[in-house]
Design a protein around this nucleic acid. Structure first.
Length: 513
RNA sequence: GUCCGAUUCGUCUAGGGGUUUAGGAUACAAGACCUUCAAUCUUGUGACACGGGUUCGAAUCCCGUAUCGGAUACCA
């Protein structure tokens, strides 16, 4: 068909990448892989004022953790490098000059103050100042000044910017892979600055030049760029280059209320907005990350992929590989999607229960010092892991994160140190102590302490003596667990063993008497 | 203000003029299971923003209105 697919993710290093950015990167990645293409990371740091030192590394770390590392970037397959726009500084001026020579751009000497004054003046009259064909003939630029005057100012070292000379009276017809046909009247556009007085290009120029030089075939970016698409297409035309295809992704919105998702929403509603924890070096403020909150990257990516896209089938759980196979950019939704914490947790839960007990046990051991201090049969590591694996198999279905494990399983590792007050009141009635004493004598006579056998014997006892399950089971559970929760009671007894079971009941009797 | 975009259950969405009593997931509720809690399973509640067209027929096409979002910087 055509040229090999090359797409780029081009963030600006002004702070941590938030999940909207990760999703844009993900869709670029999926599109590239789907078409056997190349996924490129380019850092757009043309604004020196907003540069944040650790942001670039954060972006790279975030993509790595997400499993969507670029194929081509700083220090990796640098065929079209450099990949930092600040290091490409030298190449943009030439292209701006080319546009001036072809009559598609002009020098402008208006100062920022002059333009601000003009904007204010227009605003007072309830109008909007637009620097374009309406008034460019009246302002301070190479369209109005004599050629010698322009040369003189340039030689003099006067500050100037280079602006695009937007064509007049044209209707631009464009195509977006997600939105279809888009029409724009060029008269509504303004003469955007392409080259700043500090010698750096603006986003618009740098972006087009780099995309062309790096042979980008598809531009997949956020919806906030839709209004700039016309300018970009016009620029490609002015240079005589083929424009890439465009796709503008919908925004990710706040879970409640209005507007796009912001860092504050996360703080307020208690979910992370960033993939990784981020520490703001100037304020020391720490923002939560999905990784640190215990989300698996598979769950995080699956959730993100489904925010604004779905394959049109009823399958919801997709590995990255399956996402690549199923991905179709034309199926991306056009409208913004509100972020949903519950759904995110559901994805995480699904991935957690699908992991093997052994793998989860190792994570549990690695991440929770309370378990790693636990030893079954002395110091035998294998027995220990084996025991924890079995515990995990009993409790994982009720957990969302590995960090939930301890609360769900502590009674497998240590006797309860306190008894839940509310549960105690309900479970431990007057006759409980007596019944528990009887229970101890029954248990101590047992040879086979397996879950099945213990259950059978205990139930026989209860039925034959017509005591009622409601009188025995609650205090029994309370003794072992300390609360009215947890897995099947006889699974617990067989796990902790006869001796420990009896000890715990004795302890409870002592406590309540 | 101007320009651009969007609008289906609370939320994410399926839907491309008749096969739709608008489907799925999540959330919520009830029941089952378990004499615990959760998970799980079953069932249920719940939506085409509004108004006009076009058409035999519209969630689907067109036009308005409303609402929301984005852009309107020598930021990206």
């Amino acid at each position: 068909m055509s040229k090999p697919v090359r797409v780029r993710f081009a963030p600006s290093p002004t702070g941590p990448l938030h999940i909207g950015g990760v999703r844009t990167a993900l869709f670029n990645y999926l599109f590239a892989k789907k078409h056997n293409g190349t996924f490129i990371l380019r850092i757009e740091d043309t604004d020196q004022n907003r540069y944040v030192a650790n942001a670039e590394q954060y972006i790279i770390d975030a993509l790595n953790w997400s499993g969507i590392s670029p194929d081509e970037t700083i220090g990796k397959n640098e065929k079209f490098g450099p990949y930092r726009q600040s290091e490409r500084k030298g190449i943009y001026k030439k292209y701006a000059d080319e546009l001036i020579a072809s009559g598609n751009a002009y020098y402008a000497f208006d100062t920022a103050e002059e333009l601000d004054a003009l904007r204010n003046e227009y605003q007072e009259n309830k109008k909007t100042f637009i620097y374009n064909h309406h008034n460019r003939e009246k302002l301070n630029n190479s369209l109005t000044l004599h050629a010698e005057e322009v040369q003189k100012r340039l030689k003099n070292g006067d500050k100037y910017v280079i602006r695009f000379k937007t064509p007049v009276d044209k209707t631009l017809k464009m195509q977006d892979m997600i939105r279809g046909d888009i029409k724009i009247d060029t008269n509504t556009l303004d003469d955007k600055i392409l080259f700043k007085s500090d010698g750096m290009p603006t986003y618009h120029l740098a972006n087009i030049v780099d995309d062309h030089l790096m042979e980008i075939t598809h531009v997949i970016r956020g919806e906030e760029w839709l209004p700039s698409m016309a300018l970009h297409v016009l620029l490609y035309n002015a240079f005589g280059w083929d424009a890439p295809e465009f796709a503008h992704l919908p925004l990710i919105l706040k879970p409640t209320g209005k507007g796009k998702l912001s860092k504050r929403d996360g703080d307020k509603l208690g979910f992370p907005v960033f993939p990784l924890e981020y520490k703001n070096e100037s304020t020391s403020e720490i923002s939560k990350g999905y990784r640190e909150d215990g989300y698996f990257t598979e769950a995080f990516i699956n959730m993100l992929a489904f925010l604004g896209w779905n394959p049109g089938t009823e399958q919801e759980l997709f590995s990255l590989e399956e996402l690549i196979q199923a991905f179709d950019i034309s199926k991306v939704v056009k409208s913004g999607a509100k972020f949903d914490v519950d759904k995110t947790k559901w994805f995480q839960h699904q991935y957690l229960i699908n992991k093997s007990d052994g793998e989860l046990a190792e994570l549990f051991l690695e991440k929770d010092s309370r378990v790693s201090h636990f030893h079954v049969n002395g110091n035998d590591k294998e027995n220990n892991l084996d025991y924890i694996t079995k515990v995990v198999s009993l409790i994982k279905e009720r957990a969302t994160f590995v960090s939930d494990f301890w609360d769900l399983s502590s009674f497998f590792f240590e006797a309860p140190t306190e008894y839940d007050a509310k549960a105690s009141k309900k479970a431990w009635k007057q006759d409980a102590s007596g019944l528990m004493k009887e229970l101890i004598s029954i248990l101590s006579n047992l040879e086979d302490f397996s879950a099945e056998n213990t259950e059978n014997i205990v139930k026989q006892w209860i039925t034959s003596k017509e005591i009622g399950f409601g009188k025995v089971m609650p205090p029994f559970r309370l003794s072992l667990v300390g609360a009215m929760k947890g897995p099947h009671l006889f699974d617990i007894t067989s796990f902790i063993g006869k001796e420990e079971t009896i000890q715990r009941i004795e302890k409870a009797i002592e406590y309540f008497d």
